[in-house]
Design a protein around this nucleic acid. Structure first.
Lengths: 126, 126
DNA sequence: TGTACATATGAGCAAGTCTTCAGATGAAGG
DNA sequence: CCTTCATCTGAAGACTTGCTCATATGTACA
């Protein structure tokens, strides 16, 4: 579980920080959740669901994606228990199930609104 | 800016949700931030920096990555102003610069700790 | 000036991701 | 039973990512 890859400057800090580092599983899990939020289309889907449930075709209309793409995305989100489906006849109504993700979305969106003017960085470059 | 891809069930809801949807730029931006947090190694790096600044080689030691990989990752994070470097001689000390990201990390980690036993989902399936 | 060291960078490759297309599933209604 | 409709699924292709290896930059110090 160790393996000092290279030399170290502040060995104590390194040891301390390593101890406090969450277990690998937790980190993987967390990274995974962030990954699910990292696609604009999936994000749009989840934002749409913040207000309440919607069926697949309405989600497609709201987010401007094909129904197939939406279905694929929802399947992924469903597998991670981030959304849940309610079936009514041949339609499927999806809702945001994960309160944790809801918080992350709220926090993130709140900040984006405030940061509008503060993002002069246009990617790339040094 | 429209383009009703398919039929719609609840036209009013669709219209309302569409209006409340944040602008595409904001969503892209937000998805981008989540994307930066979606890699376990980058996440490890940022978690390590929650406690204070560290130099590149110590970050490599803490996170178990090669110094080159760390440098590449830091460059990305730097380009998005999520971390910042302080140079001292030939060493570079990085710190977490973005308070918004810090909040997201805190929130996410707090929840992962509480959810340890609640994640029986092992991906894939269905 | 020349060597040693810490970090930065670029090219290239192996994996992973997202979308589309075609077809499957299963409910509703005649 | 047969058709229609909403959704789901699988496979394939274009694109994106993150790593490693080799090399560049630039500081420190003899």
């Amino acid at each position: 579980m160790d393996g000092c890859t290279a030399r170290v400057v502040d060995a104590d800090r390194v040891a301390t920080v390593r101890e406090r580092m969450p277990p690998a599983d937790d980190l993987t899990d967390t990274a995974d959740v962030f990954g699910l939020l990292s696609d604009p289309n999936r994000l749009r889907l989840l934002v749409a669901l913040l207000e309440g449930e919607l069926c697949v075709c309405d989600l497609a209309a709201v987010t401007g994606q094909s129904e197939s793409a939406v279905s694929h995305a929802l399947r992924l989100l469903r597998a991670h228990r981030i959304v849940a489906a309610r079936r009514s006849g041949r339609m499927a109504f999806y809702r945001l199930e994960d309160p944790h993700v809801r918080m992350l979305l709220d926090l993130a969106l709140a900040h984006t609104e405030h940061t509008e003017a503060l993002h002069p960085e246009r990617e790339g470059s040094t």
